[in-house]
Amino acid sequence: MSAKVGLIAAAVVVGAVFLFLIGAVVWTAGTYNDLVGKEESIDNQWAQVENQYQRKIDLIPNLVATVEGYQEFESGTLQNVTALRTQWMEAGSTEEQVETSNQLDAALRSIILTYEAYPYLGSIEAVSDLIVELEGTENRITVERMRYNDAVKDYNTKIRQFPAFIVANSFGFEKRSYFESGAAPNQPGI
């Protein structure tokens, strides 16, 4: 009688351990895939940020050509913008690109200030269209950058939380950096 009870107890224990192991494997795989997915969405979101930067860069020749004809815009600023655009395209690293882009933003801001200072410029459709596009591009960059930071936050939180950090540590998932306005995050493979 007692042998039978012992056997049943042993079977229950073995079964429980077995179930636990299966559960652990399934959970590890699930967490791993989840982390991979989150990392992928960070990279994807970074690509969106880059797209919007590219969009701004593409807008510049058109902008310069259009506003050149109006003497209110200083020719020094316009030349500076064109030079910075070239610099951006030749930039090797993400850090360089972001730094150039910040300088570019300052120059573009002065163009927008000039535009706002002379209300009659607003009535010239070609000029006002370009300024609106420029402002729109700025906003798009802000939005994509915010989404990038959201994705990073989501991922960073996950890899530090219990129990997911066990998986993150053993598979070498590393913390990703935020995109503060000013400094670029470390982006591998770009």
């Binding site: 609106v132 729109g136 906003n139 802000t142």
Partner: peptide, 8 residues
């Protein structure tokens, strides 16, 4: 979703 396009 939107990507910040539009006008204001």
């Amino acid at each position: 979703r939107s990507g910040g396009g539009g006008a204001r």
